[in-house]
């Protein structure tokens, strides 16, 4: 797996270049970068070790960029463009993304029911999951009225900043 310093150098090089998208694969690790208004960076280690996250820029864009999740990337090497295409196809579908790097929990405690299941109606202030980092339990609210169409991450999985966790059909 690439070292943080190597990823940093890569980011710097790509940032200074005219390249818009960049993918690098080695020993089951994959790094994809693409430039939007704000560059979005995500590293995915397909062998299952801890992914490396590059901390978000101190001033995130007003509309946080939504990088593709691991599944999308595996299926679509173009990465972020896959999400864009999907959103264009159905404007009512929106994603709930993680505001921070951390562990995704579907329920308030291991033996409790998940906050939401596929098909559940949700309100703006419905708690849909917890993202935990350094013992801080962040209760993620939906921020949108609608219905849960898909859950894109698994209980206990590490999620990246901006990673899509749910697909919601807006109502």
């Amino acid at each position: 797996m690439l070292k943080i310093q190597e990823i940093r150098e890569l980011i710097k090089l790509i940032d200074e270049s005219s390249i818009d998208e960049f993918t690098f694969e080695q020993n089951g690790s994959k790094v994809s970068m693409s430039k939007n208004n704000q560059p979005t960076v995500q590293a995915v280690n397909q062998s299952g070790a801890t992914p490396v996250a590059v901390p978000p820029a101190p001033e995130p864009a007003p509309q946080p960029p939504a990088p593709a999740n691991a599944e999308n990337q595996a299926a679509d090497p173009a990465g972020a463009s896959g999400t864009a295409a999907a959103s264009a196809a159905d404007a009512d579908l929106v994603a709930i993304t993680s505001p921070m790097v951390g562990t995704f929990y579907e329920s308030p405690s291991p033996d409790a029911e998940p906050y939401v299941k596929k098909g559940d109606p949700i309100q703006k202030d419905s708690v849909v999951c917890i993202v935990e980092a350094m013992k801080l339990m962040n209760e993620i609210e939906a921020e949108v009225n609608g219905e849960i169409v898909d859950i894109l991450v698994e209980n206990g999985q590490l999620v990246e900043y901006g990673q899509e966790m749910f697909t919601v059909k807006r109502k």
């Binding site: 995130p60 007003p62 946080p64 993304t97 505001p99 013992k135 801080l136 339990m137 962040n138 209760e139 993620i140 609210e141 921020e143």
Partner: peptide
């Protein structure tokens, strides 16, 4: 013991 729960918007 300390239990910290946070409510946040994306930003």
């Amino acid at each position: 013991g300390i239990l910290t729960e946070v409510q946040s918007d994306p930003d």
